[in-house]
Simulated assay, not measured.
Amino acid sequence: MKKFVLAASAAMAAAMIPGAAHAGNPDGKFQFKLMGTAVLPDGELTDVDPGGVLPDGSDTKADNNVVPTVVFEYFLTPNVSLETYCCVTKHNVTGAGALEGAEIVDDIYLIPATVTAKYHFTEGPFKPYIGAGPTYFLYLKDKAGSAAQGLGVDDVDIDDEFGFVLQAGVDFRLNDKGLGLSIDAKRYFIDATARYYADGEEVLKTEHNLDPWVVSAGLALRM
């Protein structure tokens, strides 16, 4: 399914962006990107409340995902811009260490709402940049995995969370109509709190270190 979504997105970009590029402007105020993005979280377990519930050496990890993303950027000056992007990514949390292989939380859908301020170092066809800004992870859906359910957990809630992101990348101009290629890497600094419930009562709370890398590549159109 991931491959199908990415292939469909690439086909749409190939069909639409070259035509739109006739109206593009390499020095325009707006830039739009259609990219494939790898989301690579950690998921390490950092705290358990109440303590002693899990065996010594317990840990967790979150799996990776690849999703299509749409990026919107506005240039305040030739070298300074503001950027945000849109995607929904899905992950599962499984056990590590003493919990190796345990399915803990499944089908976690989240929106990593992010805004960065970027500085572009040159104004030529090859434009490296750096950026930084706030992020807010909005969790849309999740459910208890089979291992958690086997212990009587019937519901899981992951708290929405604020964090910070650093960014670096490069835009490469393909023609004088605003069409280009873009490669981007973001490092997020953000944690997660998961709450586990049985019959409506919270029975366990765990803290996790997410700190994902988010790496993207795709087509850009400046207008």
Rank of each mutant, 00 (worst) to 15 (best):
F164T: 08
F164W: 03
F164D: 03
F164L: 09
F164E: 09
V165E: 01
V165S: 04
V165D: 04
V165F: 04
V165P: 03
V165R: 01
V165Y: 02
L166A: 07
L166Q: 09
L166E: 03
L166W: 02
L166M: 07
L166G: 09
L166C: 06
Q167A: 07
Q167I: 11
A168Q: 02
A168P: 05
G169Q: 00
G169L: 02
V170P: 00
V170F: 03
V170N: 01
V170R: 00
V170I: 11
D171S: 05
D171M: 15
D171N: 13
D171G: 15
D171I: 10
D171L: 08
F172P: 11
F172Y: 15
F172L: 14
F172I: 14
F172G: 07
F172R: 13
R173A: 15
R173F: 15
R173K: 15
R173M: 15
L174E: 09
L174N: 05
L174D: 11
L174A: 13
L174P: 02
N175R: 10
N175T: 12
N175D: 15
N175P: 10
D176F: 11
D176G: 12
D176R: 11
K177F: 08
K177H: 15
G178L: 02
G178A: 07
G178C: 01
G178E: 08
L179P: 02
L179I: 08
L179Y: 14
L179F: 06
L179N: 03
G180N: 03
G180S: 13
G180E: 11
G180M: 09
G180H: 06
G180I: 14
G180T: 05
G180L: 06
L181N: 06
L181W: 09
L181R: 07
L181P: 11
L181D: 08
L181I: 15
L181Y: 12
L181A: 03
S182Q: 05
S182T: 14
S182L: 02
S182W: 05
I183Q: 05
I183M: 00
I183P: 02
I183K: 03
D184Q: 02
D184W: 06
D184R: 04
A185D: 11
A185Y: 09
A185T: 13
A185W: 12
A185I: 06
A185P: 00
K186G: 04
K186S: 11
K186T: 09
K186F: 10
K186R: 12
R187G: 13
R187T: 10
R187S: 08
R187Q: 15
R187V: 07
R187M: 11
R187K: 15
R187D: 11
Y188C: 01
Y188W: 08
Y188E: 01
Y188T: 10
Y188I: 07
Y188Q: 06
Y188G: 02
Y188P: 05
F189C: 03
F189N: 05
F189R: 04
F189V: 04
F189I: 10
F189H: 08
I190R: 05
I190K: 08
I190W: 03
D191N: 03
D191I: 02
D191C: 04
A192C: 01
A192M: 00
A192W: 05
A192S: 01
T193K: 02
T193H: 00
T193C: 03
T193E: 03
T193M: 05
